[in-house]
Write a protein that binds this DNA or RNA. Structure first.
Lengths: 219, 219
DNA sequence: GCTGTCCGGCTGTCTGACAGGTTCACGCTT
DNA sequence: AAGCGTGAACCTGTCAGACAGCCGGACAGC
């Protein structure tokens, strides 16, 4: 590990205190002069550390008043809507297929029960908007059951992006019932702990969804 | 609009120059004294602005040498270490391998030139921290060249997360030279527009990286 | 009770200084 | 001529002190 400068060390401490909640949102930090005394460094060092916190969006500093905590964690840029339909169709299989395989091996009993509930609810659901929400939950929960945070986050982002695209709702009318059957096959494989079959079922499902989307986009 | 402090103003200018690519990855910024003169402010102001850039992961500063650009894009919150090493090793091949294949088919001439520059710079780079930054840019640029925003964002996030894990630096000592050769093979395939070979080369590279990481984690 | 003023505290910035790391060229040695 | 060591020049890291401008609250006057 690289030797840290004093400014980096102070920044790390401040960041840890903010992210751990020890300094809650809205709290006012001690003055720069006080912090300098507390940490036994000069005010320049404190200012550079505070500037780092501000750059990450954790704090804001107001002239003459002080520095205040405004967030407990670094804000994630919202990238929703920046994905094109092609981006999503192209990327999804590479992420959701392996995730389904891992889910078959790692899912908990609770996750399995929830997946069953979701699939059951979708069968009887006619409201497209509700159905899309359930579908979203189905895919998101499989990703979570993969026990891999990367897959979990990416799938969540993809589903969010899809939910914001107008094509999605148009597609539902045609695909709703066909998807139900595909979902049941995916669920069965995950239930059986059969990773290979889960991957195949998810792959076929996404392929069908991609074709449906294509036909709408090119209509 | 809130009136900006001088430090914020300088930070905005620097950030814009880095993110626009006007200051390319690997470039060395002018010295703090020089920048102070250029912008007509004191060195303190420059240092605070640079500190902000560093906090966002855009630059690294080496004592006695200067400040260097290591990324032209702000890291997202995954920097928080929310991904485990296993998460990353497991997920990367599923994302970066197809991305490398697409990059071979879709890369622009500029991207190709930048990839060449990065690979060349890595060969002569001995500072692990700078090298990791260049490695990060290499993988991120391939993802961008895939012309798929999902891959682009996910890879950038993965690399950002890796860059902030202590295991990464430990690994570099062993893997640095081997990776250089693997990077050259990936670059060659992308240069030739050979998607299949690009996928294989990336797959082998990530496999080797995964093994190296494993051996460190289990040491 | 209301208002205006003043004071103490705080941030924003500047200046000057010094310690220690880094690079490179020059000159000396072999 | 090749290699090596050394010092100068440059760079970042940190410190101390200073001052202007902003802000909030106390306090006196109405």
């Amino acid at each position: 590990m690289a030797r840290l400068s004093a400014a980096e060390a102070v920044f790390n401490v401040l960041r840890a205190e903010i992210e751990s909640g020890k300094l809650s949102v809205g709290a006012k930090l001690n003055s720069e002069a006080t912090l300098a005394q507390q940490y036994g460094v000069s005010r320049s060092v404190i200012r550079e550390a505070l500037r780092s916190c501000t750059a990450l969006g954790l704090t804001v500093t107001r002239t003459g008043r002080g520095t205040f905590v405004v967030a407990n964690r670094v804000a994630k840029d919202l990238v929703l809507g920046q994905y094109s339909a092609r981006d999503l169709t192209e990327a999804r299989p590479h992420i959701e297929v392996p995730a389904a395989g891992l889910a078959a091996e790692r899912r908990s009993a609770e996750e399995l029960a929830t997946l069953r509930d979701i699939v059951a609810a979708m069968s009887g659901e006619d409201d497209p908007e509700v159905w899309v929400g359930l579908d979203s939950s189905f895919h998101a929960l499989i990703a979570r059951a993969s026990r891999n945070k990367v897959f979990e986050n990416v799938v969540a982002d993809i589903r969010d992006a899809l939910a914001h695209q107008s094509e999605t709702l148009n597609m539902v009318a045609d695909r709703q019932h066909a998807s139900d059957e595909e979902h049941r096959r995916i669920l069965a494989a995950i239930e059986a702990g059969d990773a290979a079959t889960a991957r195949i079922a998810m792959s076929q499902h996404l392929h069908a969804v991609g074709i449906a989307l294509d036909s709408i986009l090119n209509a």
